[in-house]
Nucleic acid binder design. Structure first.
Lengths: 234, 234
DNA sequence: ACCTGAACACCGTTCAAGT
DNA sequence: ACCTGAACACCGTTCAAGT
């Protein structure tokens, strides 16, 4: 009885992307437990009953092992949720949309919010544990889109911060849920997307500033004219 | 050993603003327990040990009563956290900054994020329970700022959604914490504020569109010229 | 009406003991 | 190395009993 699920590309593809962690990549290990199997089972439970419904006991039962066995692979529940969060990120980073930088970004944000929204309570956890989650391929994917668009280094940072905060807030508030209550909820969804467009407008303003600055710098270099105010500094 | 605390205006001012709830407003009740006293104690605990450190037992002990006594005033922990969340909102809505609409909004967002950031884990809870929190005076305060600025009805909704998502994401990730780790964290803070400025740029674009639309409508009304496409509709 | 004392069901985590 | 069975400490919530 599950809602429309995105393909579990990240889980089935390769063992959970343990970005940053020094642990060696696990072998497929045809039988027995594995990080990938645990994360997959955890995702299914969360999708059904939410993060608060995910219990180490319930998880172990679904995996057909004793409670202690799960703890042999995952140190604690917090770390397990981090694995799940990274898994969702990796999956969302996989499906790269086409088009101009802003439509690509827009689609990516909406897809990501929708993906996270399928796991009740997950966005709240992710927003509270940003520092331990950001080092993923999603980061790289977004950075690349912005770099190709022409954003400067700091422009990229700023836009990414805004996007990240927005997507977590958006998914946590559950406005994108395609649940059974389709009354005046469509209005909230259009407002949420409107907020995203607002953000993209701001990003466009920023992009013009970044490009203008670079063009001026290049022009000065070509003419070999020292910068008026800080000529002695270079 | 508390961090710089904002004045507890909302708590001491009047009993916790139970927006929407049908419950009658409680009398001061000089002695004994009260919603206001419970919320205040809860805030202190959360500020010290976070939402996860807040325990109904610990709370009751700090209040000097038995566990059951607290439950006589607050139905459950979820509802208690809602009271705390609304209390923080009401407090933040109280200090209205001066200046133009965008600087007022900017200051308000940063103050709000900073206020929430003082209560670890609170932002995650608030972002996960938007629907039960939004009906506060903060909502009114922000709406008023935007209306006076000249935003249309939908423009207000969109800007507010963007602001809300951003502020929760911002405060939850704790970039505004003035904690002991002042290394490269100031950089993250400036990036967070940069994201906010991005959003305000977008809002400015939106405002121009709103004002332009209204001006055109007024001009048509003055000239009594029917609208080309939908003349028969009015 | 308000509070106490004690209980219930459940949770995350640990660990000696088995293979 | 991997798993089982059982325990420990703690939590949210309830409720008969007192005043």
């Amino acid at each position: 009885m599950n809602i429309v699920r995105v393909e579990d590309a990240a889980v089935t593809g390769r063992p959970t992307g343990n970005a940053g962690a020094g642990r060696p990549v696990e072998e497929p290990s045809t039988d027995g437990l594995s990080d990938a199997r645990i994360v997959e089972a955890a995702r299914n439970i969360i999708a059904e009953v939410g993060v608060n419904g995910l219990t180490m006991r319930r998880l172990s039962a679904d995996l057909g092992v004793a409670l202690g066995a799960t703890y042999h692979h995952v140190p604690n529940k917090h770390e397990l949720l981090l694995l799940v969060g990274r898994d969702i990120y990796v999956e969302a980073a996989g499906l790269a949309p086409e088009g101009s930088w802003d439509t690509r970004l827009r689609t990516l944000v909406l897809q990501l919010a929708s993906a996270i929204g399928q796991y009740p309570g997950m966005a709240a956890f992710m927003v509270a544990n940003t520092g331990e989650l950001v080092t993923t391929e999603l980061n790289r994917a977004v950075r690349q889109i912005l770099r190709q668009a022409g954003f400067g280094r700091r422009g990229i940072d700023v836009v990414m911060a805004a996007m990240f905060f927005y997507v977590t807030g958006l998914s946590a508030s559950g406005f994108l849920d395609q649940k059974e209550n389709g009354e005046a909820l469509g209005d909230m969804q259009s407002i949420s997307e409107g907020g995203l467009d607002l953000l993209l407008d701001g990003a466009r303003v920023r992009l013009e500033a970044d490009i203008g600055r670079r063009r001026r710098t290049a022009a000065r270099r070509r003419a070999s004219v020292p910068v008026p105010g800080r000529a002695s500094n270079v």
